[in-house]
Amino acid sequence: MSKPSATVYVVDDDASVLKSVGRVLRSAGFGVETFPSGQAFLAHPLAPGPSCVVLDVRMPGFTGLELQAALSARKEPVAIVFISGAADVPVSVRAMKAGAVDFLTKPHTAEDLLDAVHRAIARNTSDQAAHERSAAISRRLQTLTPREAEVLAQVVSGRLNKQIAGTLGISEKTVKVHRARVMAKMRADSVAELVRMAQMAGVAAPLPR
């Protein structure tokens, strides 16, 4: 179940909590890095591979929620498990809405923490895969010519070749050539796959006339 390659970052201003939580995670086989403050964590480069952040809500300086906002401003996916001293409902709602994986109330058991961390690592793994995929699609999109991009947009919005030819003022045969190049460059086997990729890359379909 555990992924020895995964890294858990623990951020807490309390030294003994930091030490004991680190111990629990290490005993479960995780690579653990501990930070006494949000600033220290932000200044540290992240290791490659799946990871998650165990974050105390109440910290002097940079609170847990502020750190969450700073992390999501970066593009890489990050999975956060919050730990809070008090079961503070408004704070936990905000944290979960902002994408936290879990919200534990101190004192928590080792099992609760490890469960949450496993889930967070799993989420991060899939998030990273998705992130990787969409990055690949974006890279492929960069290789299209402007005309090809125009044809792609028309195709994913479900228009026929004849309609596309009329809209763009080119011959239907030319549309077919562009379309074949788009399919090849995007490595799509079918129009359905092309549509999925376009959605993933956020290519908005132009409004139908």
């Binding site: 309390d14 003994s16 909590v17 030490k19 004991s20 939580v21 111990r23 629990v24 005993s27 109440r58 730990i83 001293g85 008090a86 101190k106 004192p107 928590h108 058991t109 080792a110 099992e111 923490l113």
Partner: peptide
């Protein structure tokens, strides 16, 4: 709130440490 926080820190650490020891 501040006192709950203050109490929770050592309690959390104690629980975690005890459970680690148990597992080991």
């Amino acid at each position: 709130a501040s006192i709950a926080h203050e109490l929770n820190q050592p309690l959390t650490a104690i629980l975690s440490n005890a459970q680690v020891a148990y597992r080991l």
